[in-house]
Design a protein around this nucleic acid. Structure first.
Lengths: 178, 178
DNA sequence: TTTCATATTAGTAGCAGGTACTAATTTGTC
DNA sequence: GACAAATTAGTACCTGCTACTAATATGAAA
C-alpha cells in the first residue's frame, strides 16, 4: 500500500467524521482512525482542524443562529422594514450548499413580526413563493411592507433578494394577541 | 452592612449574569462581582452552577435542536407520512410558552419533503394556515398526503393536530431538482 | 472588649485535553 | 541497503478548572 494514499484517505475520513460528530476528543478520533493520538494531532494540524474545546465552543457560539433573525437595518413601525442575513452551512441540506427554504421562511417571518412590533404575534396565514435556489454564503436582503391593517390583523408582504434578484416573496396575515 | 445580605445579592447577580452570558470564566466573573476567584468558585458550588467548560458544552449540545424534524412514525413514499414532535421551550417566543409558527412550519415542511423522498427538494410555493396557538410541551402530530404528481412537481398537504384538534394545515408545491 | 461564627481569600496538588516541540521508529520505494 | 516520508513516543508547558486546607477579615453577640 502507498502510505501517502492511506494518509490522504484517513485525513478525508477525519474531516468527515469531525463534521458529523464535532465533539470527539483526540483519543476517540485516534480509536476511530486506528492510529495513535500523535498522528491525529499531526493530521489536525495539517488540516487546520481546531482542538475539541474550540470546536465545542464554536458550535455553542453559532447556536443562537438557529433563530435566523438577521440584522435589522431599517424599520418604520407598521410601515416597512429592511433586514439582511448571511447564509451559511448550518442552513443547508446536508451535503449540499442549498439553503433550506424553512430558513428563508423563518427569516421572512421574523421580519414580518418585527415590522408590526410584535414579539409574539400569531401568524394566521402565510402564502410564500420561493423563486430561486439560495446557496450557502449568499446574502439575503429582505424588505417588508405592511399592506393592510384591520383591527388587530395585519397583512405584511416580505420580499427577499440575493444580488438584486428576487428569490422569495411572501404574504403573511398576522394577528396581535388580545 | 450585613455581610450575609451582600452575599445573597452577589449570588443573585451571579445567576443573572451567567444566564445572560454563559461563556464567562471564573476570573471574568470575579472581576464582574468584584470579589476573588475563590469566592466565585464558592458561590458556584453553593448555587450548583457548573464550570465554564460544562456550560459551553451544554449550550453546544442543545444547539442542533433547531432542526424540528420530529420522529417519523409511518411513511408510504409518494403517498403519505406521519410524524410527531414534542414542543419545548427552545421553540417559544422568549418569555412566553407560545411556540413560534416558524417551528411548526419547519416541522411541516420536513414531513412534506420526507414523503416525496427528497433530501433536498425545492419548495416552490407554500400556503399555510395556523388555526390555533401551540404551547410548549404539547405534542404535534403531523400527517402528510401527496395529492398530485406532475412531472417533477409534487403537491403535498400537511395537517398538524394537538390533542385531536387541528392547529395547522398547509399545502406545499415541491420540485425535485433536475 | 473580647469572642466567635461566618465570609472571604490564598494556596496547594491534581486532572483533562490539549500545544509545541524533539526524538525515535516504521515502512515503502529507489 | 539507503533514504525520505509517515508514524509514534515522550517531554515540558498551558488553561480552567476540582477538591481540599489554611489563613484572614468582619460583623454581631457575650
Amino acid at each position: 500500500m502507498d502510505r501517502a494514499a492511506l494518509k490522504k484517505e484517513r485525513q478525508e475520513f477525519l474531516l468527515k467524521k469531525i463534521k458529523e460528530e464535532p465533539f470527539l476528543k483526540d483519543e476517540e478520533l485516534a480509536k476511530a482512525c486506528r492510529v495513535s493520538v500523535s498522528t491525529i494531532r499531526f493530521d489536525r494540524a495539517e488540516l487546520g482542524i481546531a482542538e475539541y474545546r474550540e470546536r465545542v465552543k464554536s458550535v455553542a457560539e453559532n447556536a443562537g443562529h438557529a433563530v435566523n433573525s438577521g440584522e435589522l437595518l431599517d424599520l418604520e413601525l407598521f410601515h416597512n422594514g429592511l433586514s439582511v442575513l448571511s447564509t451559511d452551512d448550518s442552513m443547508t441540506f446536508d451535503g449540499t450548499d442549498i439553503v433550506k427554504s424553512q430558513c428563508i421562511y423563518a427569516f421572512a417571518e421574523n421580519l414580518a413580526l418585527s415590522v408590526i412590533d410584535a414579539k409574539a404575534a400569531l401568524v394566521k396565514v402565510a402564502n410564500v413563493k420561493y423563486k430561486a435556489e439560495v446557496h450557502s454564503g449568499e446574502r439575503l436582503v429582505a424588505r417588508s411592507e405592511v399592506v393592510r391593517v384591520r383591527e388587530k390583523e395585519f397583512i405584511v408582504h416580505v420580499f427577499i433578494k440575493v444580488n438584486m434578484t428576487e428569490v422569495f416573496r411572501g404574504k403573511f396575515s398576522l394577528l396581535i394577541p388580545a
